[in-house]
Design a protein around this nucleic acid. Structure first.
Lengths: 149, 149
DNA sequence: TGAATATGGAGTCACTAACTCCATATTCAA
DNA sequence: TTGAATATGGAGTTAGTGACTCCATATTCA
């Protein structure tokens, strides 16, 4: 029961974007260097985040990535959903009829409780909560500015 | 973030044992048949449960397995601990120094919260809670009797 | 004595997380 | 106009491991 590296990377890179001065954005190479994530793998992750609407990308020279919303409006649940899909602890939780052995499986509600618990933590945690203290709260009014210098 | 089949099997087989009439115990083959778990794999799982002290085994003809304690005193956390070890959602949570990037990693407390949440559900759920309704509570006074007929 | 049980541990196999590579498209600067 | 710097798309690779199998051994009972 581990979270994937992909998810970990995604979260850290989103936080990295949230930390850019004036939210100016950052490009693949710089994120890769700062977060120690292999650049080619990071590229794939960023594509997922862009497709999912959490990040905006700019092509060509001087391009890069910017958060699409305020860090306080991006939850871990959204990132998890993009990287991993629905939270489910057992295969039998995916659809109703996959549990074949017992008509009313007694552990089903337990797995459900786990799901809800984790979902709750993910839903309540925003990128803003993950910004290291010294930087918390600054530059918030300068969000959403374009990347280009 | 999935629970392993091994853990699922272990839980179901423990419940199966809790359901035996008069807690007479059951042997590999019958558990395997009833719970649809490959017998050779089940053998390995049962060894873990025996070593862990949750189940007593009897060798030789007429042998098998019996729960060592009352179902209400066996928690999912104990079973999980045997099958999977400590709950940890990220590798960096194993020891203090594995998180190398940032001295005070902001997501650490979040992973910790997940851990606590799941641990809580596991600790509060006993085998007794997983016994299907019609059987709940019966035969409790006849626990701990020997296997042999 | 032998059939029926559990034990121990090495071995197999398939799947997938994690990562690479390359060809292509876009943008800007000179 | 060209080329350097960026992102995109997707196929390919690899190492690790979860989910099993297999067999030789020990124990118990009929």
């Amino acid at each position: 029961m581990q979270l994937s590296k992909g998810f970990d990377y995604a979260v850290r890179c989103m936080v990295h974007l949230a930390l850019q001065p004036g939210n100016g954005g950052a490009d693949l190479k710089s994120i890769s260097r700062a977060q120690a994530v292999p650049v080619s793998y990071l590229a794939k992750i960023m594509r997922t985040l862009v497709r999912g609407g959490l990040v905006t990308s700019t092509l060509g020279r001087g391009g890069g990535y910017v958060l699409r919303r305020d860090p306080s409006e991006i939850t871990l649940l959204q990132i998890y959903g993009l990287m991993e899909g629905e939270i489910n602890f057992m295969n039998c939780m995916q659809n109703e009829k996959s549990c074949s052995l017992v008509p009313l499986c007694p552990q089903r509600p337990v797995w459900g409780r786990l799901q809800k618990a984790v979902e709750g933590v993910f839903r309540e945690t925003t990128l803003q909560d993950l910004v290291p203290r010294p930087f918390a709260g600054i530059e918030k009014e300068r969000l959403h500015v374009p990347v280009r210098p």
